[in-house]
């Protein structure tokens, strides 16, 4: 290939959070050199010697931002973040890890109110969903412990990701509506997808081989 002499070092943005361990395990299975540093380190940028690779550890919501601006070539991130952030990136693969569901939840005795209020960490997803359902709701953005909102009367429903449903149950909430399934995705920067096409294809191929349902 004519471009082989050009630098194809790849920077991968990894989400520090819910799916981090599963994602690291996935990288290992895919045969990437993942050093111990990646797992227990306070460093934010971790180069991998002799592998033309470098990891950036980022807050999950920032992963698409880094990739869109091209400071990371590719990234591993949940579909929940992609739906909320609406960044201009290539969504290359569904890694089929970090599975959860985006749900509307509320108290078991929830009833339609005149001015429905929804608390969520995902205001765009929530607004879009209720709009599509033909409902006008007020969306309140929270940054954590969203389950608290219906219990203390801040909102009558919440929109959040649910994996086992335990947190909901422990807080006396029930799942009301199913919005969509969420899994972890491999994303790529628009320019890197072209400028480093060989390196991007290479990593996508390695990932593809360990995705459970692909042959």
């Amino acid at each position: 290939m004519v471009f082989s002499d050009r630098s194809q070092k790849l920077t991968i943005a990894m989400p520090k959070g819910r799916i981090f361990e599963e994602a690291v395990h996935f990288l290992q299975q895919a045969g990437l050199q993942v050093t111990a540093e990646l797992q227990d380190s306070r460093k934010l940028v971790i180069p991998v010697e002799n592998a033309q690779l470098e990891f950036i550890l980022a807050k999950p919501t920032d992963v698409p931002t880094y990739v869109e601006y091209g400071v990371a070539d590719v990234g591993v991130v949940g579909k929940d973040v992609l739906l909320e952030e609406e960044r201009d990136v290539y969504e290359l693969l569904d890694l089929q890890i970090g599975y959860c569901r985006m749900m509307v939840a509320g108290m078991p005795d929830w009833k339609q109110t005149d001015a429905p209020r929804v608390a969520t960490k995902y205001p765009k997803i929530a607004s879009r969903y209720f709009r599509e359902q033909g409902q006008q709701v007020e969306v309140i953005k929270l940054n954590g412990s969203v389950e608290l909102a219906p219990m203390i009367g801040l909102a009558d429903r919440i929109v959040d990701i649910v994996s086992t449903g335990r947190t909901l149950k422990e807080n006396g909430l029930v799942e009301l509506e199913h919005i969509c399934e969420i899994t972890t995705r491999l994303i790529a920067n628009r320019a890197s997808y072209r400028m480093k096409s060989e390196a991007v294809d290479d990593i996508a191929q390695k990932f593809l081989e360990v995705i459970p349902s692909s042959k």
Partner: peptide
């Protein structure tokens, strides 16, 4: 067609 350069995130 779209043109890209090394180290530039956008076309």
């Amino acid at each position: 067609f779209e043109g890209y350069a090394a180290d530039l995130g956008s076309p």
